[in-house]
């Protein structure tokens, strides 16, 4: 994969997506997608947290720094959070972060916030399919291409 540093238009193969999933809903939804054998692109790696409340905006920035092309934050629907209101903060933090990314020059589409319940295997699979498509269209993150190149432009 090391040679994958040049920019491509639809580099489906090369897209790198990191998904933060809360244990109780979205991780379970992803489990259900698995149990239901719903097929989706393999370019996504996931990090399990107990609640999306744990997810700091730092993580997302760090993920971009580390060359991820897209980041998903997925948790329980508002009202369903296993910790009642943990995802209230998630909503606030990441709705804002999506917009703030643009201030720094990162497309807001690269961060997706989604509510996926434990019963929504289908929705989870669709989320991955759709997001992979979105990111493929955007192309690999410029931050992955080596900073100098960007800085020089």
């Amino acid at each position: 994969m090391a040679e994958a540093n040049g920019r491509r238009n639809t580099a489906d193969e090369d897209i790198r997506i990191l998904a933060f999933l809360c244990n109780w809903c979205s991780y379970a939804g992803a489990d259900l997608a698995g149990v239901s054998r719903l097929q989706y692109p393999a370019q996504v790696l996931d990090v399990r947290v107990m609640c999306t409340g744990t997810i700091s905006p730092y993580f997302v920035i760090k993920a971009f720094q580390e060359g991820m092309d897209g980041v998903i934050v997925a948790g329980c629907h508002i009202g369903d959070c296993h910790y009642l209101k943990g995802n209230y903060m998630t909503a606030k933090r990441f709705q804002f972060l999506q917009r703030a990314l643009e201030v720094f020059g990162i497309e807001k589409e690269r961060l997706r916030l989604e509510w996926v319940s434990a019963a929504e295997g289908e929705k989870f699979a669709n989320l991955i399919r759709d997001f992979t498509r979105t990111i493929s269209e955007l192309g690999p993150s410029p931050l992955r291409q080596g900073r100098k190149e960007v800085a020089v432009r």
Binding site: E102, G105, I106, E107, L143, V150, A151, R153
Partner: peptide, 11 residues
């Protein structure tokens, strides 16, 4: 625009 902005900041 977005890519320009990133370049600006990175610079």
């Amino acid at each position: 625009d977005i890519p320009e902005r990133l370049a600006y900041w990175m610079d």
